[in-house]
Amino acid sequence: MREKLMEILTETCPGVDFETETALIDDGLLESLDIVTIVAEIMDAFEVELNVEDLVPENFNSVDAMLELIQSLAE
């Protein structure tokens, strides 16, 4: 799952160090446009349904946070 997510992220935002960054939103590395592109890809790739309520910085600040979100939605 992690590899698949990393593939989506690096394709959408080349040049961002997703492995180590833990404040992707708070530090402005990801913008709203990036988030919605990533969200669409996640929904497609993992067959989960995201709501507007899920679009909060805490869910997208790091790869781990995104994985946690995907797992909670898949349950």
Partner: peptide, 27 residues
């Protein structure tokens, strides 16, 4: 913006464009 992006018509458009156009443009 967020509501619109996650609305059914835009999600459908996204699926269509990724499938039919592909690449960055499709995304």
């Amino acid at each position: 913006f967020f509501s619109l992006t996650l609305s059914k018509p835009i999600l459908k458009l996204g699926k269509w464009s990724r499938k039919k156009i592909g690449g960055t443009l499709g995304k």
